[in-house]
Amino acid sequence: MGDLDALVEEAKAGNREAFGDLLRMEVGTAFRVARVIVRTDAAAQDAVQEACIRAWRDLPRLRDSSRWAGWFRQVVVRSAIDEARRDGRARRPGPILDPVTPDAADALARRDLVARALAGLGPDERALLALRFVADLEVPDLARTLGIPEGTAKSRLHRSLAKLRTRLLEMDR
């Protein structure tokens, strides 16, 4: 934690290398979260880039260094939601490539369905799902990140999952 504090303080003071180190800790997850929200690689990259710039600008306002990860995630989510809304733009889901999973064919098909099903959800709903299932946040952290009460987060998650499931089932028929 000491290293993190030092990095945050250095970045606050204008040290770009330190800021770069902070970014490297988080951009991977950030990109994956953003990808669910905006649905394409290009838009996710835009969102993360925008988030990095916002974070650089606003970092002096981060008082508690230990909150860097959550704080940056919050910036990313807001950027991604902004990007998705700005887009409104019906970008098609990006290419489905994942050589990692052993059940690749099945997963591929499933993901294609998921990508299309996600397209039917709003950016806020996708943000919820991304934070819960990609960033692995528990509901309290998820609620804090989105700035909503836990109960609301819980009910929205419930609804978003139900909506996603319904869409998937409809498409699978």
Binding site: V27, A130, R132
Partner: peptide
């Protein structure tokens, strides 16, 4: 199932 599918979707691209 949904969780895994979403994660796979998220991981299908990279910076």
């Amino acid at each position: 199932d949904l969780r895994r599918a979403i994660r796979h979707h998220a991981a299908s691209g990279e910076l």
